[in-house]
Amino acid sequence: MGKEKGATKRNFLKGIVNENPLLVSILGTCPALATTKSVEAAIGMGLLFTIVLVCSNVLVSLLRKLISEEIRTPAYIVIIATFVTIVKMLTNAFLPELYSTLGVFISLIVVNCIVLGRAEAYASKNGVFDSFIDALGMGAGYTLAIMLMALFREILGTGAFAFGKIFTFIPYFKLQIIPVGYEISIFQNPAGAFIVFATILAVIAFIKNRKTELKTIKEREEKIRKQQEAKALAAQGGNK
């Protein structure tokens, strides 16, 4: 394929920045709010989610010419559900702590709009390699976004940053950031999840607004300068 250089990289990065599934498209909010009590759980969720997304995207892309138009959605759902079941059983066998922490939310990856959305919007129309990269980028973007949420919730809610509770193969360590007794435990509660998510979205909206504002200001200045130049030119012409 004679594709321009950097297309793959752009394909990967779009999932992280411009088309971030959670922060820009606002998809897959249920696990993002439910599994972000600790950074570790968020990493686990993001990892499982990425595995399912990559596998189903690749398989959908491989089968895209075989699956007829009418039964598309049920077929995709069955593919996704199969991979979710595989991932669920593997997690149960090898990372039982993660399995019990995430609970029903592993099964709920099936109905995560992002997975079905990517299968529908991207993998059913593009080649295997492109779909693989797309899924990888989307998965990474989602994981980073929920890690960001979990970081705020864990540090503000428990006052410390702990690691090794769920991934037991890592030695346990705990970093106390806010002194004991000053933590804001509401951030560990559901209400805190909503507040953190709202604040992150508001900051993104603020940055976007600021960018468009700066752009319009620049455009206006450019326009005024051009007008002035034109006026000066006209004045010179009049003098002659």
Partner: peptide
């Protein structure tokens, strides 16, 4: 506030 309009 403008940044909070809509979803936030």
């Amino acid at each position: 506030p403008k940044a909070f309009k809509g979803l936030p």
